[in-house]
């Protein structure tokens, strides 16, 4: 059953649920952070419309810095600005930032431990027609293994807005991951969001699904259908990939003793990996991982690609059934 404490949308499974890209939440969050704190500045590498950093540009032109197609420069400029007391958000596609500028992020932001936020748009396979070069499927792995870096992967545009505001208030480097395609707006203003705290969205007993990003909605679709088949699954929305909320995840798994992880990212090194690394040292359960299986993406509609790469709710249901069979043996 849906967790009433999660205050999910009343239209949760309605066909007319509104669809909004998570990157919109980034743009809105930037504006709200900019209103709260005059030290917030936004840098963009020639992608202000598609990263939605243009929302901030329109509101605070004097605090918006266009750097051109120069993601490496952008990362280190931001480091310099942070060293001068600013809270810079750098905005581009995740394949370029934190992809192309990974070393600059490592040296000038992470080792330096400065207050820079990295907004990576167009993460995941659902970027769609742009194809493999623009679909970031490795970004969380790159950021998660970096000391001092925090990683947040919001599940819808509202959560993206809350995550962006939270990032501005955290002292130190943060990576925020956003998607291109419109996805269901299934949380509400009342849905709790605390950095570092995973939220139980659906309460169940037989298996735990730990999901992050917009696929958390697919996980909810899967469990609602599974419930009709007599399977009671719990869904945890694990927006903060690093630092991981061990307590919430462990508490659920001690109850269900079976795990499915769901993410729009390579299964190697991603959110699911981080959960399994933690479990291997604490509490072992059979696990299945829904994610990209060591492949690059390709062109297509988001729907076509979510099916081709086996990420949509029927595949999550399959993974649940598989892990339940393993749990019994």
């Amino acid at each position: 059953m849906v967790n009433p404490q999660a205050y999910l949308s009343e239209k949760l499974f309605s066909p007319d649920i509104e669809k909004v890209p998570t990157r919109n939440g980034y743009g809105e969050g930037l504006v709200l952070s900019g209103e709260k704190n005059k030290n917030v500045v936004v840098l963009c590498a020639d992608l202000s419309e598609s990263t939605r950093s243009e929302y901030f540009q329109k509101k605070f032109p004097e605090r918006f810095i266009e750097v051109g197609v120069a993601e490496q420069n952008m990362a280190s400029l931001a480091s310099g600005m942070a060293l001068a007391g600013k809270i810079p958000f750098i905005s581009s596609y995740a394949t370029f930032s934190p992809g192309r500028n990974n070393e600059q992020i490592r040296t000038t932001i992470a080792i330096n431990n400065v207050n820079v936020k990295i907004g990576g748009a167009h993460a995941g396979i659902s970027v769609g027609p742009d194809g493999a070069t623009h679909q970031a499927l490795e970004d969380m792995a790159l950021m998660r293994v970096m000391p001092n870096m925090r990683v947040i992967s919001p599940c819808d545009a509202l959560e993206a807005k809350k995550a962006t505001i939270a990032a501005a208030e955290i002292e130190g480097p943060v990576y925020l991951r956003f998607a291109r395609a419109g996805t269901p707006l299934f949380t509400t203003e009342k849905t709790p969001f605390h950095f570092g705290k995973a939220e139980v969205f659906w309460i169940g007993n037989d298996v735990t699904i730990v999901a992050s990003g917009p696929l958390a909605y697919e996980a909810l679709l899967a469990v609602s259908l599974l419930e009709k088949e007599g399977v009671s699954a719990e869904v945890i929305n694990n927006h903060t990939v690093k630092p991981l909320d061990k307590e919430t995840i462990l508490a659920s798994l001690r109850k269900t003793k079976a795990l499915v992880t769901v993410e729009e990212h390579q299964v190697a090194g991603g959110m699911g990996s981080s959960v399994l690394e933690m479990l291997a040292q604490n509490f072992q359960v059979p696990a299945e991982m829904v994610g990209i299986q060591d492949r690059f993406g390709e062109s297509g509609t988001p729907e076509e690609l979510l099916n081709e790469f086996k990420l949509s709710h029927p595949f999550i249901m399959e993974a649940v059934k598989k892990v339940l069979r393993r749990k019994k043996t």
Binding site: N73, S76, L77, G80, M81, A82, L83, A84, Q104, T108
Partner: peptide, 8 residues
């Protein structure tokens, strides 16, 4: 780049 960010 860092120096330019500071100078900016």
């Amino acid at each position: 780049s860092q120096a330019s960010g500071m100078a900016y």
